[in-house]
């Protein structure tokens, strides 16, 4: 009975128009399910058994990606209650406590950000010790380093947005360090902050960079990173 209902649903025209394959009860249908689905097609149709073991990759890259997704969702939600101006930013943060789930969303965003810095770094460490950067994967390692730097940049630009003491002095010290770069140091700081000191211009700039620019760049690089993992032979050797 249950099976027949499932069968009816999966054979219906609507289901077929969305998912193409019926109930995946044969190998062919299982492969087609992976192959014809936009979200699943980044995975191979078949995998080596040892690649499924936890200790093979420790899931670090996957967890980083998951945390990025969590950060995107919570970040977009938080943007609805945030104004990037020095008069309102801090009080918007305080007001989050009064909003249903506001505090939890902020906590999720903050802890996921810290977690992502950790997992991305550990992912690099794992790839180094398993020597997974060898040809043909050299360039994917370079993209990975880029992703690590972008993760740090995202975390750092987000640090200013609450506009509390921690944020203000963290950014003041960090951007002053840049002024010690030979020749262009002062211009770099002036360009980043939009003024001589951390103020409204800096908050607006960091907001745009944190919410739009860097996520777009990191998203594009992530796509290339995953694509190359597949093209360079998957996680566990050639298939």
């Amino acid at each position: 009975m249950k099976k027949r209902i499932l069968q009816r649903i999966s054979d219906s025209a609507v289901w077929r128009s969305i998912f193409r394959t019926g109930i995946p009860d044969t190998d062919l249908k299982r492969s087609m399910l992976m192959f014809h689905n936009f979200f699943l097609h980044i995975f191979p149709v078949k995998m080596k058994r040892h690649g499924l073991q936890f200790s093979y990759t420790f899931c670090l890259g996957g967890i980083s990606c998951l945390l990025f997704i969590v950060l995107t969702i919570t970040g977009i939600l938080l943007m609805f209650h945030y104004t990037p101006s020095i008069e309102r930013a801090y009080f918007d943060m305080q007001a989050l406590a009064l909003i249903f789930n506001g505090k939890i969303l902020r906590n999720l965003h903050r802890w996921a950000a810290h977690g992502m810095v950790v997992t991305v770094f550990l992912h690099m460490v794992r790839v180094f010790y398993t020597r997974s950067y060898r040809p043909p994967r050299e360039f994917n390692w370079v993209i990975g380093i880029g992703l690590l730097i972008l993760t740090l940049a995202l975390s750092y630009t987000g640090y200013l947005l609450p506009w509390d003491q921690l944020a203000y002095w963290g950014i003041t010290v960090g951007t002053t360090i840049m002024t010690y770069t030979p020749f262009i140091g002062n211009y770099v700081r002036f360009f980043l902050l939009g003024a001589d000191e951390v103020g409204h211009e800096a908050l607006l700039r960091f907001y745009v960079v944190h919410c739009v620019e860097l996520p777009l760049i990191i998203g594009a690089l992530m796509a290339v990173h995953f694509w190359r993992v597949r093209k360079d032979g998957g996680i566990s050797g050639l298939l």
């Binding site: 906590n107 640090y159 509390d164 003491q165 944020a167 000191e197 951390v198």
Partner: peptide
């Protein structure tokens, strides 16, 4: 992550004040 977020609040210090540096002033 949800459990952590339920039990540990993200820090929010005083309003940014260009005149006083917190002691110690730490980077992330």
């Amino acid at each position: 992550l949800l459990l952590i977020s339920l039990f540990f609040d993200a820090p929010l210090e005083d309003l940014a004040n260009p005149l006083i540096t917190p002691n110690p002033g730490k980077a992330p």
